[in-house]
Structures are given as structure tokens and as C-alpha cells.
Amino acid sequence: MYPAKFDYYRANSVEEAVKLLAENSDAKLLAGGHSLIPAMKLRLTQPALLIDIGKIDSLKNIKANGSLEIGALATHARVAASADVKKWFPALANAASLIGDQQVRNFGTIGGNIAHADPASDPPTVLIAAGATIHVRGASGTRAIAAEDFFVDLFTTALEPGEVVTKIEIPNLSGRKSAYAKMSHPASRYAIVGVCAVLSMEGDTCKEARLVVGGAVAHATRLSEAEAVLKGKKLDAAALKAAADAAIAQVGDDAMGDITAPADYRRAMVGQYLQRAIQSALG
């Protein structure tokens, strides 16, 4: 409840933030602060310098123009309420609306969320399912990282030291059906299991499925076995069951467990929520 001492600097531009990060090895970025400050209050992390990027307005935009671009500082509440997000990728709007609570959504940002890479967080799951690209900037310039490659492990991303997430780009998903299905932890509200389905349909037949699980495993992961099962299939109950079984088998021993949801349960719920996400996407 009482963070340790730190120096504070408010950056007015991404360039400035990148420069400060390069100059200070023990610095952290402060965006919405809703992952960082709780850790600092318990002194689980004690950075020497906080670089506040929260007032850089250019990182707050959400715009749809060929692709959907979401600035790193867009709050979960704005992502959830954005007409563009709802139109382009309703699963993301839904996932954002299920994060934390009203207050957390008002100030927590999508960029801060993905940089933190909590395995039980919702956005990574839907962003991978969408085939999103994470744009980052570092001392040596900008680069684009596929969401699928961005989340490496528990609280670990492909970000290099000194890099700042600037925006998230979601490709045109028109014609796809998508949904996110989540079982929330009753206390933390994080995902015990979250599954996102993005489906490309031709009549009753699935041309392509992108299926991603989060919460149950160390980082959000494509359920490629289940995707293969559904490809070219009619999405009837038998197909969904087969996909669920494939997903359960793929998760296998990677399923995480805790006192609320042991590994065997989470693994089984991957199958349940996979089916729920697909059914919800199909409407």
C-alpha cells in the first residue's frame, strides 16, 4: 500500500520516453498504471524511475482505416465502447468489457495490459485470434511484431529492453465471425479460461478458424489442432466436440492449476469454452 521511492518523469512524446528508457536501466513506463501500481504498492517491484507516458495524446486514438488501429494508451473502457471496435472485431470489445471492473477499465490501457503479459489477461487471447500486429518503438527505430509472437511466457513478451508499445493493428476481419468466452476467477476477475474464436464461414462450413486460449496456459496460445479439425467442416455438435477434444489434447500438461481451478479442470474447461466461443460467434 506504500510504494518505495522512485523518480518520476512525465514524457511528452514517445521519442522522449524511448530516450529515457535507454538512459535508465531501472526505469519502467507508467501508462494507466493498473498493472504496475498494484505491484508497486506491495513493493513487488521497485523501479528507480517511472516514465509517465499517460499524457501522450497521440497514443490514445482508435481509428479504422483499412485496418483497425488502437493506440497503446486506449483504455479498456474506450476499446469496449468504441463503435469501430464493435464493428470490426466485436470479440475485442467484449473482452475489454470483461476486464476487471468499471474503474479499472476507465484507466487501464490496452498497451499496458499486453506489455504486462499476465497469462490470465483477456486482450492477448483476442489479439492473437485476430492476427493482430503489435507496433513498438525503441532506440533503434520501430518494428512490428505479430501478436502470436509477442507473448512469450508468463509475464514475458518479445519486447526488447527500451521498447515502447505504440499501437495495435488489427487486420480487416469483415466477413469473419468472432466471439470471446470467458470464465472469470471470482475474486480477481482474471480469466480462469478465456477462448477466442474467429471464424471464416461459407454457409455452414468453416473455411478457416483461428482459435486461441488464454488463462489456462502460461501465455495465450493458438489451438492449432482444433483449428485443423474444424477446417472445411460443418460446425455441428460433433465437429465442436471433436475440436474441443483436440484442444484439450493440445493443452495437455501445459494446463496451469491453482487452488481455485486445478489443471485437470482448466484443461477440460478449454474444451467447454472453445465450444461456447464458437457457438457465440455463430450467433
Binding site: 473502457a77 479499472v104 484507466f107
Partner: peptide
């Protein structure tokens, strides 16, 4: 906007 003021520094 509703904010949890325990999750925000005064300087912000």
C-alpha cells in the same frame, strides 16, 4: 470517470 484512487499516483 470513476477511478480507484489507490491505483493512481497524485502526480498523475
Amino acid at each position: 470517470e470513476a477511478l480507484k484512487s489507490c491505483t493512481f499516483f497524485a502526480v498523475q
